[in-house]
């Protein structure tokens, strides 16, 4: 029994203590809820938020992170570096921001910052130990951006967890997200209202084992 216990302890240390903290990135298209989810986790475990959220797309225009976020799940502790990235898009039109009553100059500035943010998000891909892809479960999951992100993560052998966010909304369709990502663990949550976060943390711990 003692030998078995020691072996288990060694394996645990090998998997969980080899790194100081696990770099966990949040990726996905704009307005999927990446910052809302990162904020939820940070609030749950540190009491602080990571960034601002807004209905206007591309609110997050810089990579922002929180270090040493210690998450506990079923008597296990893991330390994470949470990395919230700008939403990846293939186009940016400042006129789209003006639909939200933004003035032309402010909209142009936002667009300029957003393009830089997308490039920064892509460049950070190499620094991730594991990635949570956050998609809006009310929208079509088969977007090219999702395909591009998943394809890159697979090529870099980075483990992936898919989060189908906004399950509190009527149009939410988790089955569609599951059908689009059949090989991945898909967790339906509402980051805004903290719905189903227990299952999310369980999946994050599974993901960390693969990192």
């Amino acid at each position: 029994m003692k030998i078995l216990r020691n072996f288990t302890k060694r394996m645990f240390n090998l998997f969980f203590r080899r790194r100081k903290e696990i770099s966990l990135g949040f990726y996905g298209p704009p307005n999927g809820g990446k910052t809302t989810l990162a904020n939820r986790i940070c609030k749950d475990w540190t009491g602080e938020e990571i960034g601002k959220v807004s209905k206007i797309p591309h609110e997050t225009r810089n990579v922002q992170f929180k270090e040493e976020v210690e998450i506990k799940y079923k008597e296990k502790n893991l330390k994470f570096k949470l990395i919230d990235t700008p939403g990846i898009a293939t186009k940016i039109d400042y006129e789209d921001f003006m639909k939200y009553k933004m003035k032309k100059k402010a909209a142009q500035k936002r667009a300029k910052e957003a393009t830089k943010g997308i490039i920064e998000a892509i460049q950070w891909l190499d620094d991730m130990d594991a990635v949570v892809i956050v998609v809006d479960s009310t929208k079509n999951p088969y977007s090219q951006v999702n395909i591009t992100i998943v394809g890159n993560l697979i090529a870099k052998k980075i483990p992936v967890l898919v989060v189908a966010n906004k399950i509190d909304l009527k149009k939410s369709d988790i089955k569609r997200v599951e059908a689009a990502f059949p090989e991945y663990d898909v967790v339906g949550i509402s980051a805004k209202y903290g719905k189903n976060m227990e299952e999310f943390y369980e999946s994050v711990f599974k993901l960390a084992k693969m990192a």
Binding site: I92, Q108, I119
Partner: peptide, 23 residues
């Protein structure tokens, strides 16, 4: 996939620098 991200990066680098180019 790596070429797609390169395409997105180069596209973003051109938005705002090439007239009427939105991506």
């Amino acid at each position: 996939p790596e070429e797609e991200t390169r395409l997105i990066e180069d596209t973003m680098a051109m938005v705002g620098h090439v007239k009427n180019f939105k991506g």
